[in-house]
Amino acid sequence: MKRTAHSHFARCKRLTGLILLCVLPVWASAAELHVPAVVEAGQAFSIPLKDAGSGQATFYLVGPDHVMKRTVAFGSDLQIQSSDLRTAGRYQVILCDSSSCTSAIFEVKAAQPAHLSFFLHPSRVPVSTRDSIDATAFVFDQYFNLILTPAAVDFRITPASGAGFSREVSTRRGVAWMRMDSTPHEGRVQVTAALGSMEEARVIQQVAAEACGLRMKAVASGSMVTLETDPVRDCSGNALPDGTVVSFTKVDKAGKSTVDTPIKKGIARVQFSLDGRALISVACGVVLGNEVAVNGKL
């Protein structure tokens, strides 16, 4: 409710500013306002009014996100506070005395880079995947104005193992981005966006891809057979994480038996009872492994 009231108030202020913009220049005449064409955000400046005579006037500052009104006295310079110039954009100043109004326009540009917003996507990525990592950095000044002038953002990539590398990308309209492949090794990869003294680090987890060359072996134990996979790895040799489900299927004269079991310490293991000949197969997700034929005499 409070927020709603506040936003209504802000809208009224904006509306007042617009009305002033439309109406006041009609009366504009004599006293000229000398303002700089471009001002850096948060930079205070003054408008000379010493030669404008004496008496009082009403001063309006109409900015992109606020309108300010105050009474000023001729004969001294008019100070525009830095707090009134924090938002980048087009500003208009209007000065009205008892008989006429005059106005001027100036631009507030973003100040020096002070903040980096950094997006790294995704947070997990399979190894050796082309164009799978997106890094995007937004450059802001201390008032969170997007800096539209080009700036060089340095993306530093530090894998868990192996040499790191960096890539410098210039911002376009405030945004610098790059896309890269995931490396062949699983693990944590830190990507840091840096500009001057500012740094924002994000972490991406490179994970094993699909299982590759899935194999199991059968170990006899009385009327039971224990099936155990070799360490389950992807095609780059990375171990699939523990908890990944491996499906074993046994077909014998009693029917079909299946067990979905998670990998523990790199391998999946399961035990079946045997009654005569049986054909046992293994799969991980959509990847099929080898088949083992066993008989009950094992």
Binding site: K256, S257, D260
Partner: peptide
């Protein structure tokens, strides 16, 4: 949790 593992045996 990866627990429990439930085997489905003698399907026919």
């Amino acid at each position: 949790s990866a627990d429990p593992v439930i085997a489905v045996s003698d399907q026919a």
